[in-house]
Amino acid sequence: MPVSEMLFWFLTALALFSALMVVFSSNPVHSVLWLIMVFFAISGHYILMNAQFLAIVNLIVYAGAIMVLFLFVIMLMNMNTESEPQKSQWMKMAAAISGGALMLIMIAALKDNVGAVSKTSGEGSIGLIKNLGNVLFTEYVVPFEISSILFLSAMVGAVVLGKKESSKIVS
C-alpha cells in the first residue's frame, strides 16, 4: 500500500472518528476540539489532493478563526460542563434511523461511480495558490466582488444584533 493511500485511510478514519466524537461528546468544548480535529483531517485530504490553497484556507479560516469564535462563544456562555440535557430516546432513534437510511441510499445510489482522483501532484497544479488566485481575480472576480456584499451584510447584521438597545424582554 502506497504511502498516500495509507495516509488517505488514516485521515479518513480520523475524520470520521472525530466527526462522531463531535456529535457524541457531551461537553461542548470537546465537541469544538473534535471538530477542529476533523478540519485538520480534511485539510490533510486537501493536501493529498494537491489542493494546498484550500488546505491552508481551511486551517486558517475554519480551524483557526471560526472554531475559535465558537470556542469563544461557548466559553462566554460558560458551557464547558456536561450540562446539556439529552433529547428524547425516540428522537435519537429516529435520527439514527433516518441518518442511516439516508447514508445507505446515497451510497447505494452512488456506489457504481467510475472515476478516479489522482494522487500524484505532478499533473495538477490547479490547487496551488498562484493558480487559484489568478483565476479568482480574473474569471471569478464578479462572484468575488459580489460575495463582498455578503460580508458587508454579515457585518452590518452582526452589528445590528450585537447592539444593545433596550433591556425589556418581551416574551
Partner: peptide, 8 residues
Amino acid sequence: GSDKSNLK
C-alpha cells in the same frame, strides 16, 4: 431577529 428584546 431585529426585535432583539422580543423572545419570539
